[in-house]
Design a protein around this nucleic acid. Structure first.
Lengths: 330, 330
DNA sequence: CCCTGATGAGAAAACGCTCCCTGAGGCCCG
DNA sequence: CGGGCCTCAGGGAGCGTTTTCTCATCAGGG
């Protein structure tokens, strides 16, 4: 099935290719009468401009790449929030009339593919979603001279990013616990090589220090198992603790289980707060109080940042505020 | 930053554009000596072929669209399994050297955009992910003469699909309950305008009928709340039931909560089986036995089907078998 | 030694579009 | 009434590839 070209439409309408092109692209310097006859021909033939030909001459593709940097086991893309991010990005791009190419950068090989693709001029900009702020890919892509933004904080020069206010979220959680009258508030951290984990720990520490309380810290790695284990350790080290702030919900869920096994009632004996507000947080019993990361909003902000950057606009990083969702566990 | 073109590379290597093109495309009819000098020039200049120009003449884009048909509230794309589908598709396409354009078809407007885009020749094929088998989009796209496959069963003519063996999964669940010695097995269905929901119900019915037992059916709509409500109704209607098969995990989770509130022990008094094996299924207490839909495998199969179709190969539908994941709730 | 056939390089024509440039015509103003 | 402008349509030159076709070169056989 051969699609009609501009030339065919022009012939049918009895005008030149230039005029058809002008009508298609909504230029105003075209007489209404010509416009009508062209539009009629377009509809009759079911004409749709060929994308490749257009890209070739305009050097714009109206296509943006979202590159997900992720180890093969899929830490990022397994995240339940991932799909809401993808959807938010997709919607936002659609509203702006852009297309979304999704690429996974799992192996070195696929990273090369990403770079090649980007270098091939098939996208107008790139949005990186990387777990590690130290990932070299953002910088590598930025060096290509293409607009690049990062969905998370990144250490790459010249790559604007959108970041969560992790420390602020932790403060929100700890303050809430203090308001509830908790005195011995422990925390379970994420892997400290991750920015987010460090920032959440810092927020926790600072808030306690500001109110003259001491920190009680156990290390986790963002998995449920590590949360359960860290909770066991905390109970051993400090049996009198009356609250726990876990750096993410999975660990909080692990902690809930340990507390249950240890016979501690939640929230009566020990209050628990998580972070991220994943879907499962509302299914636990008791339902988990959690700091909601506005991932969808963050995604929207990242898209806007990228679009602005493509237009040649400002490139300041954006910080997203968090929100506390109070449920039964506190 | 201007990227070098084929012409520049040719000049540098002291050969013709044709030769460079041949080397780039791995043709064998080129002397090793020329090959080497071209490759050197390519590397020195960091040459990457321009995608648009290439597409224009070859009429291939090596790009496939994944179109997610979804109401704005996001039933499909909110599904926790969605991200694993996306990842599997992405990986598979990457392995095949193809790119993935993700499009949401939420509104009529966006569906038009999808059709326009596809008609613009910017993709080699389309994979539809639609909830409703009656969705008109598959047929509309297929009419464009482009290879189209559906991730789910579809009623569209000429659109091959990959389907889950929903009835078989239900049989798996019910047989398991029977083996555990359960006698009065109820079910909570999904919305019956969905193929999947109907098939799961059919599988349940048939399996019970085959063993001379009667069906006990309550209607749900795949939400947690509806599962809880349906469970309440079932307990009222038939207080002696000793097992429930829920058509998806969310409803099973809702049912668990109702059972807990009603003072029924799971699995001692009532066994519960879900369907889909979402992540949350292993976090409930007791952890939920569930029929695992091999979504990732299904996605992989769909990609292969599409790639075969593009190559002009066979187009038979594929049916994926399910697997039962036994946990504490049975 | 010449002719034939194979081999492989180069020239040039598309692919379908945008956009610059030219020029025709109409209008206003002098 | 004529000249200059302004408006708007058409002609045509690219955009960077692939691909067909032509042609040169060289080897081998008669």
């Amino acid at each position: 099935m051969k699609r009609p070209t501009l030339e065919v439409v022009a012939a049918r309408a009895g005008v030149s290719k230039s005029s058809v092109s002008r009508v298609i692209n909504g230029e105003t310097t075209v007489a209404p009468q010509i416009r009508d006859v062209v539009m009629r021909a377009v509809h009759e033939l079911g004409y749709v401009p060929n994308g490749a030909a257009r890209n070739l001459v305009t050097r714009r593709t109206d296509t943006l790449a979202v590159v997900v940097c992720d180890p093969p086991q899929g830490v990022v893309s397994d995240d339940p929030l991932f799909s809401s991010v993808v959807r938010a990005v997709s919607r936002e791009l659609e509203a702006a009339g852009k297309r979304l190419v999704l690429m996974l950068a799992e192996s070195d090989e696929s990273r090369t593919r990403v770079e090649q693709y980007v270098a091939g001029g098939q996208v107008d900009g790139v949005m990186l979603v990387a777990l590690h702020g130290t990932d070299p890919l953002p910088a590598a892509l930025a060096r290509q001279g293409l607009p690049v933004v990062s969905f998370n904080r990144t250490s790459a020069q010249d790559v604007p990013y959108v970041a969560l206010d992790n420390a602020g979220g932790a403060t929100l959680a700890v303050s809430h616990l203090l308001e509830r009258g908790r005195r011995r508030i422990a925390t379970i951290t994420g892997p400290l090589d991750l920015h987010e984990a460090r920032e959440r720990l810092d927020g926790y520490r600072r808030t306690l220090r500001d109110t003259g309380r001491r920190s009680i810290v156990a290390l986790g790695d963002f998995t449920r198992a590590s949360g359960a284990e860290a909770m066991r350790q905390l109970l051993e080290d400090d049996p009198d603790l009356d609250a726990v702030f876990a750096s993410n919900d999975l660990m909080a869920i692990g902690a809930l289980r340990t507390l249950h096994q240890a016979g501690r009632r939640v929230p009566d004996d020990v209050a628990v707060v998580g972070f991220d507000d994943i879907e499962a947080a509302s299914y636990t019993s008791p339902a988990l109080t959690s700091v909601r990361s506005p991932m969808a909003d963050q995604a929207t902000a990242a898209v806007h940042l990228l679009l602005r950057l493509i237009e040649g606009g400002s490139t300041d990083p954006v910080i997203m505020p968090n929100e506390l969702v109070v449920r039964e566990s506190t």
